[in-house]
Design a protein around this nucleic acid. Structure first.
Lengths: 123, 123, 123, 123
DNA sequence: GTGGTCTAGACCACC
DNA sequence: GTGGTCTAGACCACT
């Protein structure tokens, strides 16, 4: 389900967090769907449960996840996501797009990529 | 010219590097324009010259800058920028756009942002 | 492990970088193998740790090394090496081979050298 | 005839030297052919005659050129080239080839490049 | 004056 | 222990 790279400088919990967020964002994990338990995912990734726990907590703080004590963790509805993150993302979007344009990538090509996502909700 | 945030986890030389790259990409620093000398920028930002040197060196490796010993550092022409960086940027672009769409931002709105840059080359 | 020449015009960190790259490329240092720590290599070569660090950092940017904070530096797998370097190397190869042919070296002799490397991975 | 890059870290006289050597090695300048005078080449490249003079002297020391006072400089016969340079070139050849093989380039592909030069004596 | 290299010594976060 | 960052100060070659 997730790819971990131990040689990556980014801490493991962050790789788990970003990987899970991506699964939610791309629709692989649907709204309301139950995620594997902390222990299950920890053993399937062969890492410490504390690391998974930390990733889940961070995602809950961002609003992507919703933990119910004794029942598990679930993908939250889109509406609950932290608004601060949207501004952050827009800033990253602008800077990335600006640099791509600078490097000669056609704006139309970027637009085509966005349309492709809207249609298929892929990657 | 640049904003440094000492509380930020990102190292100073990286903040300088990204800030300068942004100035080049957005056209604030034009192709061939001379940048402040290592020592000048260091004293104006009140940090060590070695830190600036490191940022300049990294930007030169990326192809955004070009340093001439004894003469100074200059913004390089658009061509010649490391092609690996373009692939990297496209990946960031895709993931950011996908998450923004997920959060309910309209694809048309993103496209409008791109068009605005193509016209005015702002931010 | 490495030979440094202080009379050489090339900077020390570059001699270290090229020397280590050669050890990786020739198979003396195997994929995934741990390299001496920055401090260890610095003291064994009797130079400043910062100089070694700089060499390691450059090799990591090229994709030959991979540093994990708190664990050490390791030889990276062959894949993932910067593709730009391959083009650069092919250019050097062409110019060197052309001059050797001009100097009367037989093309077959060069081919024999290449075959010898493929077999034994020497020098 | 020659491409100079003022942004290159390499000194100009070295760029001239390497460029001329390449012209001789690839057969563009034939054995015994007269080269432009120092002053002529200096004005056509818009650089100082001393720089050209230095390049010519270096090439004469290597054995690629042969200056006759009062008559000009001529491409020397192949035989007169410094033997030390051949050893140097072979070392560069070996290291470059080894790294290319490491990066997955097929030895046959390198051999094909050499054969192509032998036939056409191109770049 | 410029960029480039090197040293010495310090501190941090992570393991 | 490890890598990573930053500072302070020195020296060099080139313009």
């Amino acid at each position: 389900m997730l790819n971990l790279d131990y040689r990556d400088a980014r801490p493991i919990y962050e790789q788990v967090k970003d990987g899970l967020r991506r699964l939610v964002v791309t629709g692989v994990i649907q709204e309301g769907e139950k995620l594997p338990s902390v222990r299950t995912m920890a053993s399937s990734l062969a890492i410490n449960p504390n690391t998974i726990q930390r990733a889940y907590e961070a995602l809950e703080a961002e609003g992507y996840l919703c933990s119910v004590p004794g029942k598990g963790s679930f993908a939250a509805p889109h509406t609950g996501v932290d608004q601060g993150r949207k501004k952050e993302l827009l800033q990253v979007f602008d800077q990335t797009a600006a640099e791509l344009l600078f490097l000669g990538v056609d704006g139309e090509a970027l637009w085509a990529r966005i349309r492709a996502m809207e249609g298929g909700e892929a990657q």
